[in-house]
Design a protein around this nucleic acid. Sequence first.
DNA 1: AACATTAACAACCGCAAGTGG
DNA 2: CCCACTTGCGGTTGTTAATGT
Length: 504
Amino acid sequence: MTVVKVEQEPALELASEDRAEELSPPLSFGEYEDEDDEEDEETDSEGCGGGGGGPPPLKKGPWTPEEDKRLKDYVEAHGEGNWNQVQRNARLNRCGKSCRLRWANHLRPDLKKGPFDAEEVDKIIKFHIMWGNKWAKMASHLPGRTDNEIKNYWNTRLKKHQRAGLPIYPEYLLSRVPDQDMNCHTPDESRGKKRSNELPQEKVVGMDDLVGDFMVFQHLDYGKDPVVPINPLKRHASTGDLSCVQIPANTEKTFYSNDLNYVLTKSQSMPLGSAIANGYPIFDGNLSTSGTIHGSMKTELPSFQCSKYDFSNCWLLQCPSASIEQQIDTFIQSPEFMSSHNNGLLGTIINKGDVLDDPIKSERFFEMPIPLGCNIVSQSNDYPARHPSSSVNGDCEPDLCLLAEIQDSNSPSGGSDAIFTLGKSYPDANFSVAGMSGTSLEAGFLNDDSLLSKDQSYLYSSGSLFDEEPCEERKPLIDAGQWFDSAAWKSVPGAGNTPDFPGP
DNA sequence: AACATTAACAACCGCAAGTGG
DNA sequence: CCCACTTGCGGTTGTTAATGT
C-alpha cells in the first residue's frame, strides 16, 4: 500500500492543535462515544496494545461517523504517521494501528470508491498472475484502491470461481496446454516459515476440491525466509513429460543447478508470470485433476495455477531453446535474476503466438523473459561458479536474454524520434528480439514499478524511451543503454520486442 | 415471509521490517 | 548492537447486504 505522507508545516501543527480542539471539545475517554458504544466496547487484545490496568480499553469494531470525523480532521491537520499519537491527540479510543487502517482504507481523500471497473479487474488478474498475493504492490498500481479492497475482491472472486469451477485466470491466458496427467506428492521438504494462517502441514487436499482442473501449487510467498516449492514440476525437454521434483529437506539457501529444484526468497513469489522466471514449472501439458496435494495448503489459492495456457496472449517470451532445464537453470541462477526480482526493473514479456502456432517451433520453446528491446548487446557473466555451461542451441542464449540495452542502432532510422503506442500494431515496423519479430508492444513495468500502459503513446528517441509529451526536463523512462531485466513486458501476437518501429 | 447461502466489505491479528535512541 | 516502538503487509474473521429456496 502506498500512502503519501503529508508534509506538515510547524505553523500548521500549532494551528491544527487548536483546530482539533474546536472540532472536538475536550472529552475524557469514553465520554465522546456514542451511547451504545459502551456496549460494543471490547478490551483490545495485544494487537493494539490496549487493555491492562491504566488506560481505558480500546474500542474495536466498526467506526462511527464521529470517530471518522475525528480521525479525518486530525490527519488532515497533522498529516499521516505516528498513529499512536493520533490515537492520543485525536482522543480516539482506538489503537494507532486501527487508526492507520481506517485512514488508509476509508478516509484517505484519494480513495476511489465503488466497484472495480473492467480495466481494474483486468489489471488485478494480471498482477496476480505476475505477483501473487502482493496486495499492496497491486494497490500501488491501482490509484485510489487499497490493498484490502483488492484482496477482498480477489478472495471473493476466487471463491466464486472455485465454486463455479471456473478458471481463476482467464481462459485466454490459459488455453493451449495439452492434456497431461500428473500426480504429485509433496515430500516432507523443508519449507519456509509457516505463517499462522497456513493450514496444518499434514492436510491433504484433493485437487478436485480445490480448483477443478487447475494445477495447484503451494503459494511460496509470505515468509521472509527462503522457501521451497512444494511440488515443483520438471518438464523434460525431450518428452515434454512432467514429473514432480522431490526437494530434499534441507535445501534452504541452496540452489540446484540442474533442474527446477531451487530455493526462492520472499521477494520472488510465484505468480504465473514470474513463476517461470523463477524457475517454476513450465507447463505445456494439461494437468490432471486427479492429483493430490499433500502438505501445507493455504486457504487462499496459490498464485500459480495453470490449466490451459494461451500462448497467444502470453506474457512471457518464447525463447528457442534446446534445453528447458538448462535455460531456466541458467536464468534463475544468474545474479541478474536474483537482483532483478527485487528491484523491479523493467520487465519484458513477449508474445510468442506465431511461434507457438507452429507445433514444431513451439515444442522447443520455453518461456523465458527477455528484455525489452533491441539488440542484445551484452551480458553479465558473474554466474555462480558451479553453474554449468550455458551453451544453448537456440537462437537465444539464455544468458544473453537476461539483460539487454537499448541502443541507437536498434532504431532503423538511426536513432531518430518515433512515437508508438503500446498495444497498437505497426504493420510496417520490425520489432525484433532474439530472433523473434512482430509488430507491436504492450504494457510493461519500469524500474520503479510504474506501468507503461496499453494504449499510451511513448516516444522513442536515440535509444531512450520517453513519455510522449516531453516535459521540461525530458527524462527518459528508459535510458539508452540502461539495463533492465525481464519480468513483465507484454506483447501481442506477432509482436517482437524491439522499439524498432518506423514511427507513428 | 422465513430461512439459508453467498457476496461484499470492514476490521482485527500476528508477524516482520524499519527506525531511532 | 540491542531494544522499544512504529509501520506495513497479508491472512483471517466477523458483519451486513443481497440473493436464492
